[in-house]
């Protein structure tokens, strides 16, 4: 019974709060940075160019499209697959879309459950690889703080718990609530941590594109 009450709270007010903080936090942060940039990042605005922003972004969104990413091809591949699955699974999961349908009367296309199941395992496997890489490579280990490990674990947590719940491993009710709870924690932390690269990646890459490309005619990939 307690689990049901918790579920109601987590999918009710808690979800609202998490989503508002997630969307609002990112929006406010971007708007605030944009305002600040007009005052203190003159070159950014003087050399704006859609072409160079696009070139700078696309060469780093596609895998192995930059020299740097080709230097560590395995890592690059893992990063790419990880990001696609990390975004794709929650949006196109059948179970999530049933909830969207219930709540709003519309939903996104659904992935077959087996595919989503595998994709979740890919996310977890990539995440474990990232953790091992962090520990194994001295130049990465030296940069990594406890918070960095925490964020990797937090980014994986919804997938681990979701996968366990879906496959009915462990106590289902607890796993489901944990899954929702950890996802909400993630949504709340995201705008205020380095995970905000979800949107700031595009701003930062545009800026370096203008700096090297528009201003100097030089490539950054």
């Amino acid at each position: 019974m307690a689990m049901d009450k918790l579920y109601e709270f987590l999918t009710g007010p808690a979800l609202w709060i998490a989503v508002i903080i997630f969307v609002g936090g990112l929006a406010i942060r971007v708007a605030w940075l944009f305002g600040l940039s007009q005052e203190r990042d003159k070159p950014w605005h003087d050399f704006k160019s859609a072409v160079w922003a696009w070139r700078s972004i696309i060469h780093w969104v596609l895998p192995w499209a930059s020299v740097s990413s080709r230097n560590q091809p395995g890592f690059t591949g893992a990063v790419w697959v990880f990001h696609i699955c990390w975004i794709g699974v929650p949006l196109f999961l059948g179970a999530h879309n049933m909830l969207f349908e219930q709540a709003w009367g519309w939903s996104l296309p659904s992935l077959p459950d087996a595919v989503a199941d595998w994709a979740s395992m890919v996310v977890i496997a990539c995440g474990v690889f990232f953790l091992v890489r962090r520990l194994a490579r001295p130049e990465v280990r030296i940069l990594t703080s406890a918070w960095d490990y925490t964020l990797v674990l937090l980014a994986l947590a919804p997938f681990v718990t979701g996968w366990l719940a879906f496959n009915q491993y462990g106590p289902y009710g607890l796993m489901l609530n944990l899954h929702i709870f950890l996802s909400e924690v993630l949504l709340i932390v995201l705008p205020f941590s380095k995970l905000a690269h979800m949107v700031l990646f595009f701003a930062s890459r545009s800026a370096i594109g203008y700096e090297f490309g528009t201003r100097r005619g030089a490539r950054v990939w």
Partner: peptide, 8 residues
């Protein structure tokens, strides 16, 4: 804030 400490 966004440096992911990837070491690339």
């Amino acid at each position: 804030s966004i440096c992911s400490r990837c070491g690339l």
